[in-house]
Design a protein around this nucleic acid. Sequence first.
DNA 1: GTAGTAGTTTAGGCTATTCTAAAAATAATG
DNA 2: CATTATTTTTAGAATAGCCTAAACTACTAC
Lengths: 230, 230
Amino acid sequence: MVTMRPATADSQSVQDFLKAVYTLQQKMERVSTNALAEMLSISAPSVTDMAHRMMLAELVNYEKYHGVRLTETGEREALRVIRRHRLIELYLVTDLGYALHEVHDEAEQLEHAVSDRFIAALAEKLDHPTLDPHGDVIPAIDGTFHYRELCKLTELPLGIKAKVACLTSNDPDILRHLMDKGFTLGSQIEIIARDPFDGPLTILIDGKSAVVGCTAATYISVEQDKGACK
Amino acid sequence: MVTMRPATADSQSVQDFLKAVYTLQQKMERVSTNALAEMLSISAPSVTDMAHRMMLAELVNYEKYHGVRLTETGEREALRVIRRHRLIELYLVTDLGYALHEVHDEAEQLEHAVSDRFIAALAEKLDHPTLDPHGDVIPAIDGTFHYRELCKLTELPLGIKAKVACLTSNDPDILRHLMDKGFTLGSQIEIIARDPFDGPLTILIDGKSAVVGCTAATYISVEQDKGACK
DNA sequence: GTAGTAGTTTAGGCTATTCTAAAAATAATG
DNA sequence: CATTATTTTTAGAATAGCCTAAACTACTAC
Ligand SMILES: [Mn+2]
Ligand SMILES: [Mn+2]
Ligand SMILES: [Mn+2]
Ligand SMILES: [Mn+2]
């Protein structure tokens, strides 16, 4: 650490780090080493080390004891990796017959191995899509990000009609559970009853009645039908 | 090197090493460290080191100063990687619009990143093909290898009709040159004239006349029409 | 404002993969 | 069969990513 060389943006570790910072940055001003360690499943000292090297590479702005934030370059790189990840996920579902719960882990590897040429071919073949199979927005090549006004299913008021917009989990088990319950992107949804004390929700999915635990519901975001929310 | 840990078959380096040994083994009884260093573009000492570790992993049989040979496990692993590589190449051409000269480098990376699930999906989608876009045989899942009796274009007798069966190069420039000349897998071919002193060949490709340098011709293998060869 | 706790960083290490320079062994040559 | 020349191996080193244990900061609660 006397001499420390800057990180290069083309390694798997660095790319995953960039994604992690980007994601956590949405929720917090500066991203702590512990938060990153947790998300990346590596030790905190490893994060500190990486933070140093990525600072030298001008990918993050890092202040000792005060976490990390992406620089402009860092954010551009992060979005590039996220774009790859999500395009690959979508491709796996639409062209290779993957189930929703199978795509994340595969994309987590492929995003680092694939060339720009490959990504361009996918984007072309999928007709430049804007949403991945989880309902997450795919950043455009220029980093543009088509925003959406969503709310969590847990916060949807009773009796208001909405559509399932996003299944926000990378855990295959959770996703499979949600699929089993009948949650699919775009399905019509409405909360019929809400049990107290974090109890289950009784809902209508495309007319069919179902019950979901409130923890599972956490992973579902919805878009309210034609302007009622807020 | 006092303590040396065995290599694990799931690293990129090890997988590429296995492929290299497999390929060179076809031509020579035992594969020298120098030959491997050359093919893998790494130094000879690096090869020696890897040979040691792969011996511990029982992937190769290595004798000091006498090169390396794949064990049964090693050969199985090598064929697995080659299968991946070739299925990916074929997929890139048939489904993603890649040109022949673009596929090798992409596959060289993807072969290590992709899951068994992914390869199964490709094989399914391509209807369990046996030849990659260069004309190389794709090993079956069980390691089975459908052999073919080919001869080099340079050795094809004058006036004998044959079909282009394999374009044996990974160099994009060479492949592009061959494509430009009109060589495509399956095209009908016949040598009209052969210049002496390693001079160019005058040939007929699907009826059209062309001239190829003899070095370029080296990369072309043909299959003679209905039993005339040998 | 000081003590304690929770979060971060430093110190020191380890592995896989690579390298160069030097030594050793094999192969080729007369 | 000696002497070169060519290969190959050993020695020693570097780097990226990781880790654990110990030291240090910063925030929180009296
Ligand atoms: Mn990843
Ligand atoms: Mn996704
Ligand atoms: Mn490879
Ligand atoms: Mn090929």
